[in-house]
Design a protein around this nucleic acid. Structure first.
Lengths: 194, 194
DNA sequence: TTATTTTTATACGTTTTTCGTATATTTGTA
DNA sequence: TACAAATATACGAAAAACGTATAAAAATAA
């Protein structure tokens, strides 16, 4: 209970700092300070910073994956699903600090490169599967090219932080709405029927 | 010419990195990389990181001060001036990375604390003087308490990054407009006349 | 071109920071 | 009171950053 909380608070503290400053700019004592724990407690739960980063990475990936599943399986319109998906990327996996990924990825540790590649591959496969299942349930039109759509929506969501793009809208939320509306006209089963 | 450009590019690179990560998280080679120069060139123009930070601090302060002067002396309504002033703080001095200031300020270097205090005192005096002059030119009502108003507007602008406050508005820009409008009703010479 | 200056790349010894471990003390809890 | 968990702190070892020096490369001027 209490240990679970300590563990989680370290995980969350690390996530916050890694997202903000990247991997190599953050040291263990920064994390301890943020998590309000001592160094001893940290090393009780995590062997080192790299392992911590792996678990943070896993945590975020798993968390985002669950959120995505929930969205896809929720009983709402495609438009609403899409809106929430785009919002999810804004705060989730896709928004992983570039520095964090770069630092993490460029680590001389031999295993880390393949680790991320495998983990990412599994995640992509799972996401794709979720889309396929949602498609089978009639969320998207039957002949929609899922991988293509997934790629396009990812590319578009990258623009969400672009100041120039954002300047076209009153708020990021409105941009997301616009984007969702735009995409839905191509994927909504009610509008486009075979 | 070229030396001026190199010097400036280092200054701007340092500003960017300090704003993003704070003082102590950034090292010389990060700055060199960002400024596309070698370590040798860096040490040609700057004796060390602390002196660099001082000059960055000076640069930003001077730059913001000039912008403020321009705004106060521009031929526009008080409302417009105020809007632009609040926007200025959003991107300028007031928005100096908290980490940067904290790191910078907490530096064990003996001189740094008094340095910032003096520099800030001078800046405050100059800003106050600018306000007084603007008041004499009829920008604000004659009996407005300038120091009080300055303090209040600074306090309010601190809220501009508060997510909760921002949630009341569609965009930060709208919040600034609201805030300016709110304040103007108390300071606009046309509305409130003796 | 040649001479001069500027910049780069890199190696280096020194200092500082960070790592990970260990231990005594304090805190919270059956 | 006993026991487990967390803290604070000290420590040596490893890594990173500092600041200097120098030779090669690039840019600039005569």
């Amino acid at each position: 209970m209490a240990t679970e909380n300590k563990y989680t608070s370290i995980l969350l503290a690390a996530k916050t700092l890694f997202w903000k400053y990247g991997f190599k700019r953050v040291n263990i004592e920064d994390i301890c300070k943020q998590a309000s724990c001592s160094k001893g407690t940290f090393y009780k739960y995590f062997p080192n910073k790299l392992e911590l980063a792996k678990r943070v990475f896993d945590y975020v990936v798993t968390d985002s994956m669950q959120s995505l599943q929930q969205i896809l399986q929720s009983n709402t319109q495609a438009h609403d699903k899409l809106t929430r998906m785009l919002e999810l990327k804004l705060n989730g996996v896709h928004d992983i600090s570039q520095e964090f990924l770069a630092d993490f990825y460029n680590n001389p540790d031999v295993g880390i490169k393949t680790y991320i590649e495998q983990r990412t591959a599994v995640l992509s496969a799972e996401i794709m599967q979720s889309f396929v299942e949602a498609q089978q349930q009639g969320v998207f039109r039957k002949d929609l090219n899922i991988p293509f759509f997934f790629y396009i929506s990812q590319q578009l969501s990258a623009y969400m932080h672009d100041p120039v793009v954002l300047s076209f809208f009153d708020s990021p939320e409105k941009m997301i709405m616009e984007l969702a509306t735009l995409l839905v006209h191509g994927i909504e089963p009610d509008t486009k029927q075979l």
